[in-house]
Design a protein around this nucleic acid. Sequence first.
DNA 1: AGGGCGAGCCAC
DNA 2: AAACGTGGCTCGCCCT
Length: 590
Amino acid sequence: METYFELVRDADGVRVACEELSREPFLGLDTETTELDPYKGDIRLVQLSNGRKSFVFDMLPFRNGGLKENADLTPLRDLIGSDAQTKILHNAKFDAKWIGHHLGCEIGNVFDTYLASQVIAAGERDRRHGLADVAQFFTGTTLDKTEQVSDWNAPELSASQIEYAARDAAVLPPLREQMADRLKNDELERVAQLEFECVVPIAQMELNGFAVDQPLWRERLGKVKTEQAKTADQLQDLLSAGVSQASLFGRAEINLDSQQQVVDALLNLGIPVPETTRAWQLQPLAEEYPVVAKLLEYRGVQKAVTSFGENFLEFVEPKTGRLHADFRQIGAPTGRFSCSEPNLQQVPHDNEYRKCFRAPDGRKLVIADYSQIELRILAEFSGDEKFIEAFISGADFHKITAAQVFSVKPDDVTDEQRSFAKRLNFGIVYGVGASRFGMMTGLSQNDAESTMRRYFSTYRKLDAYLRDSATRVTSERTARTASGRMLKLSFDETDRQAVGSARRYGVNMPIQGTSADILKLALRRLHDAIRYTSARLVNIVHDEIIIECDAVDCDETAFTLGKAMSEAGSEFIRSVPVKIDARISDSWAK
DNA sequence: AGGGCGAGCCAC
DNA sequence: AAACGTGGCTCGCCCT
């Protein structure tokens, strides 16, 4: 396929090209860069195309004094930043980061073919989402991506490189047309828009990075390493106690991280090892056998040293001294984000870790999370009057539900009753069964069952909703969130376990996914609201948003954050209040 | 040597 | 007879 293109290398060319492009409602946009990380390399090309004609802007001649400051590029920045034209990109987060960092502008009005492909695939695992795959799937065109990894630093780019660059932008407008039809047909326009509007805030968050106090992290690590060495030594002693040669030839060292060897050693000591040696399974044995208690202690410190050790600091970007993690916008088919390198969504809750995430001098962190968002979503979906009433009362939710379930006055609820209610409240979101509920509460199977019966007979409509939801999953094989996000489920209906698992997944997805919808909407509103302030988005954890701002602005920022989150929640949850817990702090610790 | 996978454990 | 959803990270083990 031939692509018609013009190469732009001077100020006049930029002006003329942008003038022509500004008349187009839809523009394919792509960049070619010398690295994958915007803090490490440069932008070489920026391509814009209406699908028939592409302009390839070579950034090399504009680099003197920095792209950001170069006035010759103003028409290009204005065009990219404008909301008047829809910019079509594949994985727009990537380009948004480069354009934001190097050109100093935001992309206005994004259509992301990568996210659109994921939204349309609705969790189908065999679908690929690379540009070549997506173009093939939706327009039947075959793309050759071999130039993608070529040298974009060369003083003179080859004809083939420029042709490739031009074509990558040119395929986007016709691709958008096909995808837009499909989004409309599948009633996925709203969720797609939600995703598209989230791209720039997330790109900005990754550029911002999350400040970590490295000396403090190392100090904690030092302590925990000492602890780890001591615990490992004690555990070796305890485990080798059953081996007779130990005293003659020194200890028979075993690899404490090998479950096989640990299980063998435990069996040697005559300990009845359960099927797995997971913490919750070993817990009951810990009291009787000190070696089991020591093993659990070892696992704890081992995790602290390995997953949250020096490796974590290797992700600090030297240029900023901060962690710039990689957030995948549709990390789970439910719509939740996932995060890696490092995963800032799994930092232990313990203050020893969280206090290491500190705002720099003169700055503050503003931290806000949704209170019991998934249960509120469940209240909304089910329309259960008593469940709703428990939220509207504004009192301790688990206590109120305990009072309702056990038919006592709220003041007479025992700690044990509240604990049962709390565990059940959380469990039902995931489709907990009586067996598991009994396990975690220590109730017998019978008592667990009768407590659950009592719970569901208190919340009749909730029960009905959960049953309907599960039935719909098996008959329609799809589930949807409040924004219309879809999950397709495939399972073998003769496999009881597969059916059960699909039902739980299908019941959970609309709840978990609606929570993700709300967070994404909040991110967009927040982004617009803090645009010209000192506030910067630095981390998100499913139902929590963390902003860093100048200390003098923290009250205003907290208000803005609370408002954005609360309004976003109210878009999808109307029958119960949306509660936000916010705090201003020097660090992430409580 | 390095990929794939499961166990285990961190978060929500 | 059953066994709670979503992710990522690190380790050992097994394979090519």
